[in-house]
Design a protein around this nucleic acid. Structure first.
Lengths: 176, 176
DNA sequence: CGACCCATGTAAAGGGTTACATGATTAT
DNA sequence: ATAATCATGTAACCCTTTACATGGGTCG
């Protein structure tokens, strides 16, 4: 994140949420200790010219050494962590539990995905208007497209799945 | 897993990989301690009638209490863990590193997704031939469909992304 | 003045992987 | 025989979240 501009830990978290929220997240409990250790390793440094007296605020900047380390990290093969999807796990074992409960989980997940999709689409419109960072915007757009595609796929799957649940339990229509 | 049939820890791992590999995974370091604690909690029990003397093998079975706990767990809202996708993170920061390296990551990821997709499609053909467990097969098929849709979406995204990389670096055609 | 956001950190606890260690059984 | 697979477990380590604790600044 510090390749964009110097930031505080708090800002880093906010920016991650806003820009990479799609596919990444970090907690303060992760960020602050990391800033310290990266600082000790010389990959980033505190900009002391900000707050002269109080030093309530630590603004960090990336160093050349940090930039080099980042290049190296990017070239390393990404590790894809083992999948863990509780919703699918519950759908898988749906016949062992309350079908309506699982159906409700799907409905909720669908709503969340719709909200996400709208958010991404809004960002997509704005991203093209970014004048500086044109080279970067290209790659940002790519990751955003993944988020959009993922959300759409998921919503479609939810619809299909909810239809299947409706078939299994047609009481719904009587109640309404 | 034990709702299917009594199994050893080793078998549970194998079955998870084969059936839920799509969206779940467990390591032995997770499974064996869990079997012990579930056993102590009375949710599962060791079937001692198997190996009388040696007891090299522990076959576990779910208990009524375990089945009730499972129903409860299914009804609880699934927790969707924070996203962490290293590939997308590297694409996002591609302009800070070696573009070819990131492009290679995408190619590799695409190949993996194609392999996954073929595997899922093969399973899909087999799943309909399962005679018993008809009620269960319905939900299995749903989760499998998610895997198939996810893989297809991802492959399409890789293709689009690789095209973008090709635009950024047209040297490729000269080299070939 | 109170609410809310900015800001930094620590500690405990939990979750999870990997590597290690060991040995039985089965197939070639 | 010997390799592969079946089988169980532990220990170290890392990652990560959550909760807690603290306090400054800003705006209504």
């Amino acid at each position: 994140m510090l390749t964009w501009r110097p930031m505080t830990g708090y800002e880093i978290k906010r920016e991650i949420q806003a820009s990479l929220g799609n596919f990444w997240s970090e907690s303060f409990g992760q960020i602050y200790p990391q800033l310290r250790s990266l600082s000790e390793a010389g990959l980033i440094k505190i900009m002391s010219d900000e707050q002269p007296a109080g030093k309530v605020k630590n603004t960090y900047a990336i160093t050349d050494s940090g930039r080099a380390a980042l290049r190296g990290w990017i070239s390393n093969a990404p590790s894809n962590r083992p999948p863990r999807d509780e919703l699918l796990l519950k759908v898988f074992f749906a016949s062992e539990g309350e079908l309506q409960a699982v159906r409700d989980h799907c409905r909720k997940a669908r709503e969340d995905a719709v909200a996400r999709l709208h958010k991404y689409l809004a960002i997509e419109k704005r991203i093209d208007s970014v004048k500086n960072h044109q080279d970067k915007a290209k790659y940002w757009r790519m990751t955003l497209k993944m988020g959009i595609a993922e959300a759409r796929t998921f919503i479609a799957w939810c619809d299909e799945t909810l239809r299947e649940f409706a078939e299994a339990e047609p009481k719904e229509e009587i109640e309404k």
